[in-house]
Design a protein around this nucleic acid. Structure first.
Lengths: 340, 340
DNA sequence: GTGAAAGCGCTAACAA
DNA sequence: TTGTTAGCGCTTTCAC
């Protein structure tokens, strides 16, 4: 390994000067600088990042915390893939590295562990749920003075750094679209209520339905709950089909459930886009390849990841103030909701 | 920050003893150990990973190098998602952390850059292509004495660490299946030839066809090449349809192309599973949700990632010998290739 | 503008 | 079984 010392010797300067040159600090004679750079080049010197981290007491890494999801190959979900891509691009742009941290099932471990080893300067938390335990852990993180940011999850009452999407507006526009097309008995297949965006979507749904003259208290028979998996959508199909005389459209809280639902309904003889309208959320790749293609609420996951990384790293670098961002969604219309 | 020194003082031992306790090294009196552990607990001491890395001259990180793919949200592809999940699980199990490294378009950067900063002890390279430039860079990496492993790519003539799948056998079984079902004019939609697995699949295809009495030299009109994207499959549909009287089945080198192909053919009035049989590769999630569901060659990407990480880290930890592994594939039969 | 020198928190070789 | 000590390669303060 080539050290700073050797470069200093070859260039005939002190080690401190070599550091200055490489960090672009302080005033220095152009000639000295060139001499150092040349020496570094001939020796093929490159600063040791770990030693730098050690001395600076900064790792130069951004951590991304992934939730523990049993028996699920995590990345295979559109949401994680996109968010991670967005984070990765921005992190690189800003000269950081990206450390992936997988949470374990282990009830013991709390978020502070992530920082304890000092391997990351900040972290983005994905897939957080709004449970008492989670809230408490995040508060502890905050108290510990550790910079972090949540993506696609909002904690009402807290001022955590967040980058979310406007799921309420997205759901509203989807249901509104159905109502405008003439559907009136719109069922809602929601995901787990522990995620804030489930609640948001529910609100958007209720708002649109109310504007169409349906009071929330009369909507119970139109409300179904899955867990965002394709299987849960598939299972919901039976229940929906049971009430087929009271339902002419279904809005699902994500594409996976919407797809499972369409499959299940088809097996029962009910075709999406013919016998019933279906809309999903995420506008994942899968929405394009189903039959019929799935109308879906597009969520800018990539941008959300990118923004979260950017704002968080800026904060780490001294930018003052927290942030709570909410990006727009967009309804992408395909054939699954065409009027029969 | 709580340092080792404070723990040592509180426990009434030397700093070295604290280190020993935390590293489980050397013989020590149980009582001393307990005293140290207790002191550490009261002070809430946790070793500083960066300082450890610095002193050990080991980062404790495994790097995963992702290829530069313009305009593609990388993780959204089944292959990367699965491999990465497998790596992540194993890396965690072995006490390492996972550093994601995105290659840039930049022609300058070579693989050695990845190691220069000393931020990783070894790396897994995904999406490598067999081009002269790539080969040369990998050789330089090897010469530099940097431990690395390739996944899903084989470099004939080299002894790089590799974890591959038996794509030849997988393709053979797919084509064989078609032939046994009575299809005889099986076209092949391959991906970019710069990936070794494209060549492997081609071989499997040719072998099966030859056994059915078709000589390779007569197969040219049955051979199509895309670039593994859905769009390229979609575009291939037109060409395939042109020759529809000479084709009764298509084997595609991945699911995305197969799906694009089915869509394209459908628009031309040709239904997969009715007018033509289609088989894909990867057995991705998407294969389950298309209409008709897509028969596909399952590749154990998750296991490949996991194995690559394990063997590579073992090697870093002194296990002797390189490795070239090849895992089995399996044909998953669905309706896209049923006999009309 | 540049150099000298004091850390940073830990590991590991050696001594006791 | 435990303590002492010399680094690890760099940043940063202070002095010149």
């Amino acid at each position: 390994m080539v050290t700073r010392k050797e470069v200093a010797e070859l260039a005939g300067v002190s080690e401190a000067t070599v550091s200055r040159v490489f960090n672009g600090l302080g005033p220095m004679k152009e000639e000295t600088k060139q001499r150092v750079l040349e020496a570094a080049k001939t020796l093929n010197y490159h600063p040791n990042a770990i030693a730098q981290s050690f001395a600076r007491r900064r790792s130069g890494n951004l951590g991304v915390v992934l939730p523990y999801v049993p028996k699920v190959h995590l990345f295979s979900t559109y949401y994680f893939s996109e968010v991670l891509s967005g984070i990765g691009a921005k992190v690189k742009e800003m000269g950081y590295d990206l450390l992936l941290m997988f949470r374990s099932q282990d009830e013991e471990s709390d978020y502070n562990d992530v920082f304890r080893s000092q391997k990351v300067d900040a972290c983005i938390i994905l897939g957080a749920a709004d449970t008492p335990r989670e809230r408490q852990q995040l508060k502890k993180l905050e108290e510990g003075g550790h910079p972090f940011c949540l993506v696609n999850q909002h904690f009402t009452g807290e001022r955590f750094n967040e980058v979310d999407a406007d799921h309420t507006a997205g759901s509203y526009s989807a249901v509104k679209h159905l109502l405008e097309k003439g559907y009136s008995r719109v069922a809602f297949l929601n995901g787990s209520s522990q995620f804030s965006n489930s609640g948001d979507r529910r609100q958007g749904y209720i708002q649109a339905m109310r504007e169409a003259g349906m009071e929330p208290e009369n909507l119970a028979h139109l409300y179904y709950e899955g867990n965002y998996s394709r299987t849960s959508g598939y299972r919901a199909a039976a229940a929906v089909y049971e009430r087929r005389r009271e339902i002419d459209a279904v809005f699902a809280a994500n594409d996976r459930m919407a797809i499972g639902l369409m499959q299940g309904l088809r097996e029962l003889g009910w075709e999406a886009g013919r016998d019933v309208a279906v809309i999903g959320c995420d506008n994942s790749d899968a929405a394009r390849v189903t039959d019929p293609p799935l109308t879906s609420v597009a969520v800018p996951f990539y941008e959300m990841g990118s923004l979260a990384a950017q704002r968080l790293l800026e904060q780490v670098n001294g930018e003052p103030g927290g942030f709570q961002l909410k990006l727009d969604t967009e309804l992408i219309i395909r054939q699954s909701c065409r009027k029969a």
